[in-house]
Design a binder for these strands. Structure first.
Lengths: 217, 217
DNA sequence: TAATTATTGTGAATGAATTCACATTAATTT
DNA sequence: AAATTAATGTGAATTCATTCACAATAATTA
C-alpha cells in the first residue's frame, strides 16, 4: 500500500519529481541499474542534498554506499505522481495551441489520454481531428460526466475562458490546465494550473534586458 | 534612464511581473485609471504586501492613499521586462508544437517576432509556413547571426536537442526556450528555460492522486 | 484648512525551502 | 574478517521569500 503523505509537499518538490522521473527514464534506457544523488543532481543541475531531501519526503528508496535503484525509483515516482494509470483528458478549444497539443506525444506517453475535443466553431464541430471527432461545446457538460473526464485542458480565447471554466467545474472536473492568459476563479477543491508560454519568453527578455545587474544603492 | 537593479530578483517575482502586466492590460481596457495593491492582489490571488514588495524592488510607482496609475505602471513593467521593443526570435523544429507556436498570437503581441523557422525534414524545407519559409537546419548558424536573432525557441525531438542547442550557442544566441524533455547543457552566460507541458499535467495528476493528505507520523 | 481616510513603501518578523554536515550503513577492497 | 570507501537519510543551520505592521504621505471630506 502506498504510504500517505504527511506534510504539505512544496510545488517545487513536485515539479522536481517530474524532472527526476524523466532523468530516470533516460538512465534506464542507457542501462544504469543504480544512480547516486550526486550523479542525478549533476545531470539535472541540482544539488545532491536536494535530491535526497525531495525523495525522503516519500520514503527511503536508496541504499547507503550505492545509490538508488533506477527501475524501482522510477516506478515509485510514477506512483507518487499518479502516472501508473490512465487519465481521461478533454481539450476545450481546438485552435492553434489546442490542436498542437492533441498530438503532443509526451502526454499519451505519461498516460494522459485525450478522449474528447470541444469547440464552438460550427466549421470544426463534427470534423475528425487526429482520430477524435470535435464536439459542440454546448454539449460539453454532459459529455464530460458521461466519459468520466478527470482533467481538462483549457485552450479557448481569454474572453471565453471564465464562462467555459464554470461549466467544467459544474461537470465535476477537479483538475484544469489553463492556457488562456487570464486569472480564473474556481472553488477551493478544484486544482487549477496556469500555463502561459509567453510568460516564459518574457522571463528570457527580462534576463537579456537586465543582464549585468549592478550593485549600487 | 532606467534604474539599474541592485539585488538579485527572484524568479517568482519576475514571473509575477508578467502576471501584473497582463492584469494591467485588462484594467486599462476596463477603463481603470488607478489600482490599489489590494485590488490587484485580489484579482490575481496574491497578497497586497507581495504586490507592493515586488514593485518596490524596481522603484516606487504608487501614490499613497490612491494606488498605482494603471497606464504608467503597465509601461514601467513593460520596460522592466524588456517588452518595450521587438525581439527577433527563431523557432527550431517545426513539428506539432513548433508549428502551433508560430501562430500563437500572444507572442507577437508582446513583441516576440518569429523571423526564422528551421527543420531538417527535406519535405518541409522550402515550404511556406504561415508566411515564413522553413530553412534547412544545416544553415542555421549563419542565418541566426545574419538575422540578429536573440531568442530561440527549441522544439526538436529530445534526441536531437543537445546537438542543435550547441549550434545555437555557437551562433551567439543568449536566450533559449527549450520544449524538448531533456536537461540541456549551456554555458553560464546563456539563459536557458525549460517548458514542458506534460510536467504541468503531472502536477495535476499528483494533486488528484494525493488529494486528501493526512497527518500521521 | 484641519481632520479623516486610504494606501504606499519598507524594515522587521516570520515562514518556507535549501543546504550543510555528519552519524549511519551497505558495499567493496585488502 | 577487518578496514576502507561510498553514499544515504535527516536534524540543524542557513538562506531566501513572504507577510506583518506601521510610519509616511497624498487624497478626500467636513
Amino acid at each position: 500500500m502506498a504510504r500517505r503523505i504527511s506534510r504539505k509537499i512544496s510545488n517545487s518538490t513536485i515539479h522536481r519529481l517530474s524532472i527526476y522521473y524523466r532523468a530516470l527514464m533516460g538512465l534506464e534506457r542507457e542501462g544504469y541499474d543504480t544512480i547516486s544523488s550526486k550523479e542525478l543532481a549533476k545531470r539535472e543541475k541540482l544539488t545532491p542534498a536536494q535530491v535526497r531531501k525531495d525523495l525522503s519526503f516519500f520514503g527511503s528508496f536508496g541504499t547507503r554506499g550505492l545509490g538508488y535503484p533506477v527501475k524501482e525509483l522510477k516506478q515509485r515516482i510514477a506512483e507518487i505522481l499518479g502516472l501508473n494509470r490512465l487519465w481521461n483528458v478533454a481539450m476545450v478549444g481546438v485552435g492553434n495551441v489546442g490542436s498542437a497539443l492533441v498530438s503532443y506525444k509526451e502526454f499519451a506517453r505519461q498516460g494522459f489520454i485525450i478522449k474528447l475535443l470541444f469547440d464552438n466553431d460550427q466549421r470544426k464541430i463534427g470534423s475528425n481531428h487526429k482520430g477524435i471527432i470535435i464536439s459542440d461545446i454546448a454539449n460539453m457538460k454532459s459529455q464530460l460526466k458521461e466519459n468520466e473526464i478527470t482533467i481538462v485542458i483549457l485552450t479557448v480565447p481569454a474572453s471565453a475562458a471564465q464562462k467555459v471554466c464554470d461549466d467544467i467545474v459544474e461537470a465535476g472536473v477537479k483538475a484544469i490546465l489553463n492556457f488562456a492568459p487570464v486569472s480564473l476563479k474556481v472553488p477551493d477543491d478544484v486544482n487549477l494550473l496556469n500555463e502561459n508560454m509567453a510568460i516564459e519568453l518574457e522571463h528570457l527578455s527580462f534576463s537579456l534586458t537586465n543582464r549585468n545587474m549592478v550593485m549600487f544603492d
